[in-house]
Design a protein around this nucleic acid. Structure first.
Lengths: 366, 366
DNA sequence: CTGAAAGCGCTTACAG
DNA sequence: CTGAAAGCGCTTACAG
């Protein structure tokens, strides 16, 4: 064996180990795999292990995967890796998957959402065993693809309208309820919603929940309105806020669908010479990093994105194992974080809170 | 062929396409691959393509990879995916790699830096073709591993002392020079450095550069000091700042090795009832997202982390292709972003700037 | 231009 | 407990 002891780590195969240990390759395979090791005489197993070690043998997962049909690879599609909302989801999911022997391939859909399907197809080509989708629209072709191809998949952060796949999301209705309750309790009546894109579940659901919560407080029609941003960005938030301010200069509170949008609202208020919270209160959604450090520190609805990622990974893992064929929706409860961007409305500008009023019966659930 | 037309997408193989198209599997392979298509009669190629399409054939990259020895998989090790400094690096790299047909497997070293080597080994098992390391210490065993195993690898953001691998980093000396120049120009003389961990190149280099820059301004010994944080976090930054304040209550400016550290300094100042910038100026490093929105908006040194990631990917790609065997260091120029956390020192507390003084000859370069 | 064969490195029924 | 064989799905010299 000429090139055997060279330093140039030419890949050592099971065959070479077998030769050096004077056993058959199949025996090496059995000895090396803890799961099948019991099939091999202990002394032989030890010898094989020692030889493998000495030769610097390293299993080729590609080859094993071809044979077993398992890649131990999971794909994750995110709208933007660098977005501080999605990176903890990715992080939480990847950690959980790694613990179970799966590696995570990330695909940043980023600039080209149209390429989503193409990316999913590419990942399928790599024989990924499952897909975590954080990119999904309310009705998304990627979901069709996964269903057709029989690729185990779960949604995270955003859900699909038709609920064809399991999803892990924050309770948007509850979150919005907490937000609206908070500003109403502070005495606000003229409250506007800075909505997210309606094509995405969070945008859609939070907007609906906003109106639901408002109705519960007996606030409707003239008192309530919303303006939707076309995307979840600071710029879009500022633009939508400007439109809001033009349409309804009398508002005293803005409930945003998202922290980034709320930050955009900060910018727009500043432009108009309005102060937050003295003139207008603002509340966000997500509690992304640094929100305690912006000025004013942002009151918002906290979601544990890391937990979202972990749960999604767990769900996917079950799916891959075939444990649990049920489609389930896991909804995590968000919580209110009161900081300094919300305060009572300016004197004489808002009507007094009608605290004693019974919630309208039109409201959801409780 | 019984299970052929079932909706349960049983994987269609080249063999089945060959049968349906009445050609040999090798011909299918050649027809399907754009690179070898020219070897096949156009009419045959078209027929094969059509059949493949109809049958829903999808290439198995695992199988192809086993045969060709190429996985088209690249691994990336990051200290923390959710860190806003590393996510844009990952994002920039992944995008570039995707454009060249490589998928990126992320491994968050996160909680367990000790597991780094283990993770690298695992990725090697997956036959990754290269590794991008954002986790490296000044002297790192993972580098040894890559070298031994002959795995193409490049470092990003952090460099290794021995320069055994190519690296893409920000010019730490220049960044620190810009930072020190800025506060000195504002009139500060009693300037302290809030240093990062010395085990990491950025911590080490920025500290050295701090002293170099100070000397150039004729500031040394009693005037200058530093306190090192044990990690790049807000908490560590606050703790180190407290120590700094205890040791040298007279300082009027803090030059931090990192934005997170600077944010920690904000916290510590607040605790002591000190105002930034009125009592003490603070300057960061990185310009991570949101730094324009914290209070006060942070003056800092901007680094394009996305560009860092892109360049690292390009370098790795060359390496993988074997184009460029040179070890090279790409250093990107950072820039000063002046915001509101820096101002002239409080009256009567700092000595007047000795603006006319010639830089000490001990200084680096220019 | 096309086919037949070998082989990438592994795993796993099948015998014994 | 171990060996011999087959095969995962592909690609690629080798003939013709």
């Amino acid at each position: 064996m000429p090139p055997s002891s060279s330093t140039r780590s030419k890949t050592v195969t099971i065959k070479q180990v077998a030769e050096a240990a004077a056993v058959h390759p199949s025996t090496v395979s059995r000895a090396l795999n803890p799961e099948t090791r019991y099939l091999v005489a202990q002394e032989v197993a030890e010898r094989v292990l020692a030889v493998a070690q000495r030769l610097g043998y390293r299993r080729n997962l590609l080859a094993a995967g071809l044979r077993t049909g398992r890649s131990h690879l999971v794909g994750m599609l995110v709208p933007d890796i660098a977005n501080t909302v999605f990176s903890p989801i990715l992080s939480g999911a990847a950690e959980r998957l790694a613990a179970e022997g799966f590696s995570t391939v990330v695909a940043d859909v980023g600039r080209e959402p149209g390429r989503q399907l193409e990316i999913a197809r590419e990942l399928a080509t790599r024989q990924i065993e499952g897909l975590i989708l954080a990119t999904v629209q309310r009705d998304d072709p990627v979901v069709d693809f996964c269903l057709e191809q029989g690729i185990p998949a779960v949604l995270v952060n955003r859900a699909e309208e038709k609920r064809r796949l399991s999803a892990v999301v924050s309770d948007d209705a509850l979150g919005m309820q907490l937000a609206v309750d908070h500003v109403v309790e502070l005495g606000h009546r003229k409250i506007a919603h800075l909505a997210g894109p309606d094509s995405v579940s969070t945008g859609h659901l939070r907007r609906r929940a906003f109106y639901g919560a408002m109705e519960q407080h007996g606030l409707r029609s003239v008192d309530t309105l919303h303006e939707a941003a076309e995307g979840y960005s600071r710029e879009e938030g500022a633009a939508a806020t400007r439109r809001l301010l033009d349409r309804a200069p009398g508002i005293t509170a803005i409930v945003a669908a998202n922290d980034l949008l709320a930050l955009g609202a900060y910018d727009a208020l500043k432009e108009r010479g309005l102060r937050c919270p003295q003139d207008i209160s603002i509340i966000g959604h997500n509690d992304m990093p640094m929100m305690d450090l912006v000025t004013p520190p942002l009151t918002t609805i906290r979601i544990s994105h890391n937990a979202l990622g972990r749960e999604a990974a767990d769900l996917l893992l079950q799916r891959i194992r075939g444990d649990d064929p049920e489609i389930r929706n896991i909804v995590l409860a968000p919580s209110l974080v009161v900081r300094e961007s919300t305060a009572p409305p300016p004197q004489g500008r808002a009507r007094r809170p009608r605290a004693a009023k019974t919630p309208a019966k039109a409201g959801v659930a409780g």
